[in-house]
Design a binder for these strands. Sequence first.
RNA 1: GUCCCCGUCGUCUAGUGGUUAGGACACCGCCCUUUCACGGCGGCAACACGGGUUCGAUCCCCGUCGGGGAUGCCA
Length: 499
Amino acid sequence: MSQNPAPRVRFAPSPTGFLHVGGARTALFNWLYARSQGGTFILRIEDTDQQRSTEESYAAILRGLNWLGLDWDEGPHAGGDFGPYLQSERLDLYREHLDRLAAEDKVYKCFCTAEDLEAREKAVTDAGGVWEGYDRHCAHLSPEEIAVAEQAGKPCAWRLRTPDEGSTFWYDLIVDKREFQNTVLVDRVIVKADGFPTYQFACVVDDHLMGITHVLRGDDHVSNTPFQILIYQALGWPVPKFGHMPMILGPDRKRLSKRHGATSVEEFQTLGILPAAMLNYLALLGWSPGGNAKEVMSAQEIIKKFSLKKVGSSPAAFDYDKLNHINSEHIKNLSAVERLQLALPIITERGWGLDPDWMIHGCDGTEAYLGRVLGTLGNRFSSLITLPEQIGFFFTDEHFVDQEAWAGHVASDAARENLAALADALEAALDLAVAQPAGAFEEVIRTTAEARGVQAGDLIHPSRVALTGQSRSAGIFEVMELVGAPRTIRRLRAAAAAG
RNA sequence: GUCCCCGUCGUCUAGUGGUUAGGACACCGCCCUUUCACGGCGGCAACACGGGUUCGAUCCCCGUCGGGGAUGCCA
């Protein structure tokens, strides 16, 4: 019904660092918008800063996007009809449009060096004045003056002539009308002395040439927008729609930085965060499904509900607790097969596996065993990071031991005696040559408790710590089944002796 | 300094010119459980402040304060 053509949006990172959460969020919202509107998501690399751009950053950004599952329709490796998608390969295009602006006298050559500008700024401030940006020193050089400078071999940058009167405004997709008085806009450089365009210029030329309809970017770009609109006007081009999304802050509401913890997307991967959870959490930062709608969602569900109208306008603090919660919810939603795929590399990289000698009831291989282990874990499996600690005892005697739990449940004469008695009883009652099911262990524990005149719990709690090193675990009878009778008895005896 | 934006529980947020201001995380308590976790139930906790406009403002306007951003030949 709508007459609007399908939107074309882009994420345009500069390869000068890793993909950080702010960039990821920007990429995500562009992606969500494209996917929810049947539009096109474009990836463009803004590598016009010859000093800071690196191959490593470029690769890292692509890795980060891939990890999150943000696939682009046009861009590096994807191709497209509007390439190339690296700005460093589009220099001819910028030159062409600069020439046009120059021919129309909408830009001018500036021979000021960084030192010149510094000196003049210092002079102004020393005199008690306020330096309000470039002073248009070169705005009205005569042809002779320009010739002299060029003959002297002075490099020049190009600046856009900006108006002094009126205002420049736009209707923001997120924050309604935004307006800047033209007097606060300065004649900024659009092509640097090295011949490369500045961000301001390359961005406008590319957005137009690539048919970008909606520019969704961080709020830190707001002050660039009026200047860029002036460039569009100088070039005689229509202005796309702009939407400036609020910043993401650290938990202390200061600028998010490394000192707050992980800030690069890839760090979260090593922290055991699932990409789907990261995506989910990032989406919740600034956007809301509304009302009492559930927050734990898949990418598809988010796409279905996404709307720019529901994107808020206030900065959000990054909350690691909430991220972890979303993450554990995503893990809980995984199928048994998916959990197995997730856990398998974690145990194999530690060299853990099923020893055939253990004769575990109903298990004939590491995968089957791990599957059973994860089964007993159930929803206790909520973190990739704590998983090794949670299940290590199933695979090795060199497992994690919670000293507090040990002191509380094993380190007493009564506990040691109970453990020793239980070990004896198990050895006497069970055929150690065959795998034993959980029920067999339970029966021995209950009869032993009765025989000794103690509560079953008096045997269960010390046993749990003796076997798992922890005060919390899956049902203890299942644990015994999966640890196997020989190892169970050995650990009970070891605990009784060590207490 | 100047310009711009933002301001609902500690955090993410929903919301309306008249609501017991809703949900989620975290926290606390209870239940379940041989334990822990999960789960269930309950609790604590917010409209930054001051003026207007209005019969009535969390919501509209102005100011103050607080926070953030920009102020580059970085993006």
